[in-house]
Nucleic acid binder design. Structure first.
Length: 528
RNA sequence: GUCCUCGUAGCUCAGCUGGAUAGAGCACCGGAUUCCUAAUCCGGAGGCCGUGCGUUCGAAUCGCGCCGGGGACACCA
């Protein structure tokens, strides 16, 4: 819709201009302040220029009115134009708001260590990534959703050790010395119990079994993580194992050496990341020959870029932001364009319940489980609330709020608007297919503006995706629902002479809400 | 100390590629149901847009300084 307007306006202006949506629909559907900037060029008042420009649009069918007001040029779309768009959307709902974007994107998110269940912070990144994925695909991008599994390194050993010690303490009389660092929390004990069933008690009396427990525990945790994600309607296209990637270490390392990216000092191998904008050089191989975590990420990103996507997006916890510079440096050294990698940071979540704050700390074991929250408020409410805020700002919410069933709970409010439409059709004994042929013409101001608002979804999702600000979609759906509720209260629909037209308008609103919700992984309700 | 991020209504937050009277929800106060679901709607109250200077015809929005909150600064992942 915006594109049609833009093209039409451009035809008459022939130069750069900003097309914006006026704050108040009474001004028009679209507007441009172009006369203000032209005022300087032509040395005439903006008001005069706007008036002259307005006359050029007299014959354009997509506008019913183009007027100059206080220097602004305001455009009002015609009924015919809006009706045509609505008819298309209702008849071909699947393709409503579809984009024609092209290009491949590798989207990596969650990538939580397989050393425990997902907590609420992971959930935020997961929901954001999954929704970005769904919207991006709808817009036409070829996106792959990937999970990087950190199944190598010290934390996997610690997982095995923790299971080993927990089992030793619970099921044997042997002495237990807890190290400074280990995983705690109920799930470790549960794993120990399972390990006992799988391997027998003897597994806790021989340190050699730690390795076996590590490997086994990691697989259990990966299963758990997948199931946590599935419960929130999140699935991945690919899982990439850090451990498996290490087979390519020599090859990657040779490439770094060939590109003069590394040096040896104090018995360690360093990456010259400070040459590429990082604060300092980073160790990638320790004195004892073990590669650092960064080495794994270097292999991974080399491998990612070998796969040749147009663009790469990583969603990381905000605490990793210092890590961006070194990974980009490595990409640069490997001969790839670091600007193709975009990192979106996902900030902390502070959860309240009845006003009481929860604290979370993965190491201490008292973190809030994603699965607990999903169970308590439902995956859909959780998804929605996460999407109402920018990913890189702190988010605070009260789980009790998500359990209320009134307008304080935005997901309910939107679902109710959708259900209302369905109820109207039932009441009238008609279906959308039966009213779609009625022309939405000669509508009053409210209906006309509601129709216009419902048709904004394509530009809203494009804006939300390109700016990575998915709250634009939730905000939009909230305001569309509000608009519809107002309309419903003000205008009787069933049994009036305009019944068919208003039902068609309602059907359009429902198509938009349903599509918007679907892109967020939420199913619209037909009855509440 | 360096870097990142945030500071807008009592609370949680939108708005920020500069533009028309600064928005929403919650909470608070007052209304609406013989009429399609009141799970809704209408009205009211509530703001030196942290602060100072600058750029501009125009600044919540851009720039610099300051104040305040949070985070990151590993050979941990």
């Amino acid at each position: 819709m915006k594109k049609s307007v833009h093209n039409t306006v451009k035809k008459h202006l022939g130069e750069d201009f900003v097309l914006e949506k006026p704050k108040d629909l009474a001004f028009g559907h679209y507007a441009t302040p172009v006369a203000f900037s032209l005022a300087k060029v032509y040395r005439k008042s903006p008001m005069l220029i706007a008036e002259e420009l307005a006359e050029k649009f007299a014959d354009e069918a997509i506008f019913t009115k183009v007027e100059a007001l206080k220097g602004y040029l305001n455009f009002k779309l015609s009924d015919t134009f809006l009706d045509q768009k609505a008819t298309e959307a209702i008849l071909d709902e699947k393709n409503f708001a579809k984009g024609e974007k092209s290009g491949t994107i590798l989207l990596e998110y969650v990538s939580a260590n397989p050393t425990g269940p997902l907590h609420i912070g992971h959930a935020r990144g997961a929901v954001f990534g999954d929704t970005l994925y769904k919207i991006g695909k709808h817009l036409g991008y070829d996106i792959t959703a990937e999970y990087y599994v950190n199944d190598a390194g010290n934390q996997i050993y610690l997982l095995g050790l923790s299971i080993y010690l927990a089992g030793r303490e619970a099921f044997t009389d042997l002495e237990v010395t807890w190290p400074e660092e280990y995983y705690r929390g109920e799930y470790i004990f549960d794993l120990a119990k399972q390990a006992k069933e799988a391997f027998g008690e003897a597994v806790f009396s021989d340190e050699k079994s730690i390795e076996k427990l590590s490997e086994w525990g990691k697989d259990r945790m990966l299963d758990l993580i997948r199931s946590n994600l599935a419960d929130a309607n999140i699935t991945f296209d690919t899982f990439v194992s850090e451990k498996a990637l290490f087979a390519k270490w020599d090859e990657t390392f040779e490439k770094l050496k060939a590109n003069n990216a590394v040096y040896e000092k104090e018995g360690k191998v360093w990456l010259k990341s400070s040459e590429k904008g990082d604060e300092k050089d980073r160790v990638i191989v320790r004195e004892d020959g073990r590669p650092t975590y960064l080495a794994g990420d270097i292999i991974y990103h080399n491998e990612k870029f070998e796969r040749g996507y147009d663009h790469y997006i990583n969603i990381w916890g905000a605490d990793h932001h210092g890590y961006i510079a070194r990974v980009k440096a490595a990409i640069d050294f490997l001969g790839y364009d670091p600007d193709k990698l975009e990192v979106i940071l996902s900030q902390m979540v502070a959860l309240l319940k009845g006003g009481e704050p929860y604290k979370m700390s993965k190491r201490a074991g008292n973190f809030i489980l994603m699965s607990d929250v999903v169970e308590e408020v439902g995956a859909e409410a959780l998804r929605f609330i996460f999407l109402t805020k920018k990913s890189d700002t702190h988010l605070e919410f009260d789980v009790d709020m998500l359990k209320t069933q009134d307008s304080s709970n935005p997901i309910y409010y939107i679902q109710y608007a959708h259900a209302r439409v369905n109820q109207l059709f039932e009441k009238a004994g008609k279906t959308p297919a039966e009213v779609v042929s009625f022309k939405l013409e000669e509508l009053d101001e409210d209906a006309h503006n509601l129709l216009f608002t419902a048709l904004l979804l394509p530009e809203v999702i494009e804006d939300a995706f390109e700016s990575r600000q998915l709250q634009k979609l939730t905000d939009y759906l909230k305001s569309l629902a509000a608009f519809y509720h107002q309309f419903y209260n003000k205008h009787k629909i069933v049994g009036t002479k305009n019944e068919d037209k208003l039902l068609k308008l309602s059907a359009m609103v429902a198509v938009t809400i349903r599509t918007g919700l679907r892109l967020m992984g939420i199913e619209a309700k037909y009855k509440m």
